[in-house]
Amino acid sequence: MENFEPVIVAYCCHYCAYTAADMAGSMRLRYPANVKIIRVPCTGKVDAIHIMKALEKGADGVYVAGCLEGDCHFKNGNTRAARRLAYVKKLLDDIGIGGERVEMFLMSAGMGERFAQTASDFTEKIRTLGPNPVKAALGEAKRAVG
């Protein structure tokens, strides 16, 4: 596992986290390349199925980054996303994958540093958790076949 480089999918809201990522870039802040950003118009658009499919297809961790409380461009998309995330966490616990592989973060468009820090912290957390057990099983299956 020494060479384990986690794959992280981050669903980032266009109005805050995605802009914060941009900001982090222009501030020349470093954050891990492990994080694959998917821009969404609002975290309210992120559904359980998006998170589940990301994990099923091999992501080691998924996070959703939305606007600060009360600042959602669409009023309450971020709080909806938070509720869906809680639902997915429970689902992941139930199937033995572990809800700690998914998380919700809040930030504003100006928080470039926060974006970079979040990306680093979450990557490290997943690195500690180790690879998505599904991927490991998938790998073994492939090796067995190959």
Partner: peptide, 15 residues
């Protein structure tokens, strides 16, 4: 879709 992912992941993990 969600249930399919969940079951798929579970049984995959179980080998």
């Amino acid at each position: 879709g969600i249930l399919s992912s969940a079951l798929n992941m579970h049984f995959m993990k179980e080998g």
